[in-house]
Design a protein around this nucleic acid. Structure first.
Lengths: 245, 245
DNA sequence: ACAAAAGTGTTCTGCCTACACCCATGT
DNA sequence: ACATGGGTGTAGGCAGAACACTTTTGT
């Protein structure tokens, strides 16, 4: 910070509020879904919005994001605490909220398709729903832009990180993992090559010895894997169009 | 934002201040430099810090970053307006500033080695200096962490974007461009392969017909190029260690 | 003549693509 | 038996790594 900081009076200006908003994604029945909240009051009453809320005086933005997520979705605290949250970007246009000056730090999170879907929780969670991103349409404030940024970020992240496993349950088949990629990228992938690529990357997935699962009833039972310790994917797993001219 | 936003009183809490801080890099005499400001007052009087300052009530964080950069470095307004600014991340730990709650949106910028170095400007610019990042050491507040994040970000960005040209003057040789990569990555690169890779990427650089420059006095004069319209680099130009196991 | 820097050519390796093929299970 | 999904093998192509070599300048 510059010398311009010194002598600043915190109360001289109309204060800023700082918020944390979340774009929480899951893959469910073949399409990418995002967690949205139905707004109860003006402005944008009745509109859908990303979950989020104000950063409290003794919180960091990330702590606030976790707290709001737990409050609004009824997810268990341990689940929320273990969640991989990633800062997306901060939105600070002066008129992004009609009421007052709000600077919002946006986060992205990826969760598996939860057995008890979040919206069934009590309290604030009553207005939370999983919505296919394709159907999200208009959202309150600038949340449609945040959602678009988050969407494109996770598409890119799948290329060079191991984050795709965050969309899967603790144990999953390679077919399920491939479906995550295909859903997020909206592109079919070659199964043999996908398989080799994933298994050739040390620490991406680890075999669960002896375990197998019948997928969809038909077909050969698939071996089960769990997420490995690796986070980066070298060399990357590129989208089919990614390296074509 | 959630329903938690409604009924919020802007004055109910100790207000937040929002700041924009900048990590401005340049390549100069074979090493990566960052623009730092010597603080005149407490806290951290006499310490080095990243340039930056408060976001004003009607500004976005990015606008504030440009304004502060112009004020503190004496760079021409056109130069600052044309600068490629990229949002790095927002730092919001409650105690990052001992005086009050300050949430800081950090930006990164890359500039060529300026003919008239920024620090020579008048006014606030008097305390600005280019410092080799290796010599930056301890900085005020959490700026050392911001600098480290910015450093690693630009290293990664060079791999898959055309940003390296931002470090070069309007016309440059491929040797100079390669020196940028080698300086930022601290790795020697193979000249023939680098050259082919850059020229094979459409829109990365464009030849300036007929022009040539003697570099260092000795050796064959090098052809000149200017930055092309491309921004992405597909496929990426990976660091030597990047895809080795 | 020699050093230094630009620029060209060539070989080798390894990954990625593609597609053909076998295996196990339910109906 | 056959459909369905899991899993293995293999040939071709393309890009990058490594390095030998030529060209043009200053001393």
């Amino acid at each position: 910070m510059s010398d311009g900081y010194d002598g600043y009076d915190p109360h001289a200006y109309e204060p800023f509020a700082v918020a944390a908003d979340l774009a929480v994604f899951t893959v469910r029945s073949g399409s990418l879904h995002v967690l949205l909240i139905r707004r109860g009051q003006e402005p944008y009453a009745g509109a859908w919005a990303l979950p989020g809320g104000f950063v409290l005086p003794r919180e960091s933005a990330e702590t606030a994001a976790r707290r709001e997520l737990a409050e609004e979705t009824g997810l268990a605290d341990e689940v929320v605490a273990a969640l991989h949250l990633e800062q997306l970007r901060t939105y600070s246009e002066p008129d992004r909220d009609p009421r007052m000056r709000i600077v919002s730090v946006a986060f992205t999170a990826l969760v598996p398709d939860l057995p008890e879907p979040a919206p069934d929780g009590g309290g604030d969670a009553a207005h939370a729903r999983w919505v296919p991103v394709a159907d999200a349409g208009e959202l309150a404030f600038d949340h449609a832009a945040i959602l678009a940024d988050a969407r494109s970020r996770i598409g890119a992240k799948l290329e060079y990180t191991c984050l795709a496993t965050a969309f899967c349950p603790p144990e999953f088949t390679l077919g399920e993992l491939q479906a995550v990629y295909e859903t997020v990228w909206s592109t079919p992938l070659d199964r043999p090559n996908f398989r080799r690529k994933v298994l050739a990357t040390p620490g991406f997935v680890e075999a669960v010895p002896g375990a197998a699962r019948l997928t969809g009833g038909r077909g050969k039972p698939a071996a089960l894997y769990k997420a490995g310790p690796a986070t980066a994917l070298h060399p990357p797993l590129l989208r089919p169009e990614g390296h074509r001219r």
